[in-house]
Amino acid sequence: MSEDSIDLRVWRQFLAVAEELHFGRAAQRLAMTQPPLTQAIARLERTLGVRLFDRTRRRVALTPAGEALVPEVRALLAQAQALPARARAAAAGEVGRVRLAFVSTAGFEQVPAWVRAFRAHSPGVALELVEATGDVQLGAFARSEIDAGLMLHTPGSAPAGLARLPVATEPMVLALPARHPLAQAPRPALAQVLAEPLVIFPRRIVPSLYDAVMALYAQAGCAAQVAQEAIQMQTIVNLVAGGIGVAWVPESVTQFRRAGVVYRSGRELRGAGRHGTVLPVCETSLVWPAGPTSPALARFVGFVRELVGG
């Protein structure tokens, strides 16, 4: 018998003898006769090349090597006993791992609430979070580094090749420097706003939303004067507070209460919605690779679907 062939039955026999310190009682506990048990322990000792028990006519005692094995064997047998239940739990998505990427706007509201709720609902599933822009998420999907992502885009424009669950739709709003004259007006004119320097995210981050913002300027018959690009929405808002320009951001960003910034919705802009000038709308979707999914991911998607009523 080689070390590779030592099966759990032999370790159960070892543990019975170690706990009883009597071959007769151990054999009785294992529902077998004593000679086969004695032979099994002798074979185990030969295979390992160490003595596990000191045996005399009157007593059986563990050797130091045998004592060292007892806790390890107990743990091994406990793990083996738990394997069937764990396999069933894994197949049901009750245990496992979901690596979730998210854009910063989702981090204001959806992600914290969902993480708390999902961890209470499925404590056996590890939800690992990483903040990443849409382009970074696509690369991570290609390398199988994430299982799902929360992406920002215009309605219906999620990246191709991914399964999608829309989770939120919101308008874009205007962010103005608080000291700018337009911020003091109750209803600044859209035409005046569009003439201001613009702070915006690079197109590669959210192509559909970038194009929608540029289309807003084109509809009004002007070209955007891009003063600065920034990747994170919080950075964009900070640049607006510093007077670099104005910005169009998802409404959820208004929860980022940055001093020195004033937000204006479309209803507060004169000329918005008229003469074909349509303010952009953005959508957040939960996305994941199309095709078969792990049970844990399927469980998470189902949980989110129930939350959003999708």
Rank of each mutant, 00 (worst) to 15 (best):
Q137I: 01
R143M: 07
M214V: 04
P188M: 09
A183R: 01
E128I: 13
G149P: 02
V249L: 12
I41D: 03
A175H: 08
R299P: 01
A183D: 03
A178K: 02
P177D: 08
R74L: 08
V262W: 00
A168K: 13
E268A: 14
Q219N: 08
T293I: 13
R187P: 00
S294I: 00
A178E: 15
H153I: 04
E128S: 10
Q219H: 08
R55G: 00
H22W: 06
R74E: 15
R88F: 01
P159E: 06
R59S: 14
L190A: 08
E19Y: 05
V249E: 05
P166H: 09
E3H: 12
A91Y: 04
A185W: 06
T154L: 01
T38W: 13
E109Y: 14
D147A: 06
A75K: 13
G66H: 09
A191R: 13
A68S: 13
P155H: 09
A117R: 15
S157T: 10
A158D: 12
R179A: 15
R164G: 00
A31D: 13
R164P: 00
F141K: 09
W114G: 02
F300A: 05
L76S: 05
T38G: 02
H275C: 04
R12Y: 06
A298N: 11
P289D: 04
G93Y: 11
V206S: 12
A223I: 03
A101F: 07
E45G: 04
A296T: 00
V206D: 10
T56V: 06
E19C: 07
D7H: 12
V281G: 00
G260H: 09
E131L: 07
E20G: 01
F23A: 04
R143S: 13
P159H: 04
L138E: 14
